[in-house]
Write a protein that binds this DNA or RNA. Structure first.
Lengths: 334, 334
DNA sequence: GTGAAAGCGCTAACAG
DNA sequence: CTGTTAGCGCTTTCAC
């Protein structure tokens, strides 16, 4: 028999609503009664029933997370667990709870989203992956007009909350860094062109070359269909058949691993390589791989901040946050 | 204005209680009314309000997960994300939701547990780490008598639900495998002796030697305070100062990485090395590291199964599951 | 088989 | 500032 607000009210000699107001930290309540109530709560070891509050408030203070199941690098790339931690840190700070669910595909994701929304479990949703033409985003935006935030800038970002790195700048800086080290023949190997991140990073690459007056060699640019070691390897092998660049930038560590492998097999000279995401594996490559840390935990943290801000009607004055990346220099660019 | 059970009732020309019974799949309800109700639900696009159900049922069909924040290898070792996926898979199957929270230390963990329990958010709790003398386990067992399950066998396991690998057997098999390959001087480097897993694995090691009539050399046995590359390196360096074993077994990949490093620096002959946990990094070592896959996803899956079984009063007839490990052979033992 | 009514524990007008 | 009252949406006795 758990203790309820009524028990507290009785002991403190006030009405249930007064207790309720104390819980909610309502402004106009005398310090005296506040104290009385707190004492009663203490004595009875009272905890508010969150479910009952949620029902009355029509708000659960809970965020729903949708995790992709299919991602190849779910386990290799600690992105998700890091982002989840960042989300948790901010949510805790604001007294929010988090639910998560894995989905196997886009359809399932939509089902889960529907379920979260219609069953009233969550107040808002965090999407941890921005696919191209993401049906979930579309669904949430158009059909439901439900509060949500996307990690990764969506194609059409107007009216949508999102957080992302500045992928243009991140790659621009990388290439700039290489150029300053004297590199001129710099190859680019990225993921599918359909992804925002690939395009942004490619643009950063192109811009850096342009700024330094280095002409672009299309044969040094590859956009693969997957972020896999194999694809990186294949692209690099083709590049090496054409010519030996002095440096290679990639949009994912896995691609970079493949590049390193190809270089070991085939290249005569030392070629600088830069990865992306700074996965734990980067440090274990030979040579240790220089990589761009995308700060997944911060991405999660600010995603939660954006969403909770919206839920609480704070006027944050922005619909997105840009998280700075950090280049982690290792042997592969020395 | 969301659609409620009343709206459905009105449209179907029945009472709310009838609709409720249909939702709960109550036995004595005529097929005819059932159909009527379903149609009405369809037409109105009705979804039951989970919060209201939870309040009335005094059950949320939600499991609470406590994740440690401090674990060094939280990001390197995909254990947690894999276990979380396993939990999610089973929970989804049974219509359960999952909440998670990160804690920074044992005290915080207890606070979070209390919060989950008292606020009535969750029906049961999953602990993803079994520390020695775990206060959370104690608390849950003694103070709360709350349904929970532990991943990792607790010290006193009576009356507690848990899942774990058979660590004794896993290590026994590893050592046996090495002996069958002709190894005789086999070193053991483990984590702290206070942990169940270390002791179990050590026992497996000792037993295998004994069965084959190989005498134990205490100087080849190390139990380090941490599962870190550094500790593995240090232990291996000391071992090599003493003598060159022909093989080394460890209780964690990170330790094994340190061992490989020490061997590279110092050993004259090839020494076989086996890791534990089969982290993604294992495949990227030089040589590629043979390691024991502990099947984290299955651990999570069965943890959820055990807990949900208890919540639904199914008599599973056991308070634990033992998950088989799998030796992943790679270059380091060839 | 089905309906009426009370209640799960809390909140929020509305009064005072 | 505080109490009264009527819900939030669903479940569940208890009748019929």
């Amino acid at each position: 028999m758990p203790v309820t607000i009524k028990d507290v009210a009785k002991l403190a000699n006030v009405s249930p609503s007064t207790v309720s107001r104390v819980i909610a930290d309502h402004p106009k309540i005398s310090d005296e009664t506040k104290k009385k109530v707190f004492e009663a709560m203490q004595k009875l070891n009272y905890y508010p029933n969150a479910i009952a509050r949620s029902l009355a408030n029509k708000s659960t203070k809970t965020l729903g997370l949708i995790l992709p199941n299919a991602e190849e690098d779910l386990f290799i790339n600690p992105f998700f667990i890091q982002a989840m931690r960042g989300i948790s840190v901010y949510a805790q700070k604001k007294g929010y709870y988090i639910m998560y669910t894995y989905s196997n595909n886009e359809n399932e994701e939509i089902d889960f989203i529907k379920n979260y929304i219609y069953s009233k479990w969550v107040d808002g949703i965090i999407l941890l992956t921005a696919r191209e033409n993401d049906r979930c985003i579309e669904y949430l935006k158009d059909n439901e007009k439900y509060p949500f935030v996307v990690v990764g800038r969506p194609e059409k970002s107007d009216g949508i909350l999102w957080v992302d790195n500045n992928n243009f700048k991140a790659m621009y800086d990388v290439v700039n860094y290489l150029i300053n080290k004297g590199h001129r023949d710099i190859a680019f190997i990225g993921g599918p062109h359909t992804l925002n991140v690939t395009r942004d990073r490619l643009d950063g690459y192109l811009r850096a070359l342009k700024v330094h007056g280095i002409s672009v060699d299309e044969k040094l640019i590859y956009e693969q269909v997957d972020f896999t070691e194999m694809k990186g390897y294949e692209a690099m092998m083709e590049i090496l058949d054409y010519k030996e660049p002095s440096a290679v930038v990639t949009t994912d560590d896995l691609i970079a691993f493949g590049v390193l492998k190809a270089i070991k097999e085939k290249a005569a000279n030392k070629i600088a390589v830069v990865g992306f995401n700074n996965t734990p594996l980067a440090e274990y490559q030979q040579p240790k791989l220089t990589s761009v840390d995308i700060k997944a935990e911060e991405l999660g943290y600010y995603a939660a901040k954006l969403l909770i801000g919206k839920l609480e009607n704070e006027d944050i004055g922005t619909n997105h946050y840009i998280i700075d990346t950090e280049l982690i220099e290792r042997e592969s660019t020395l």
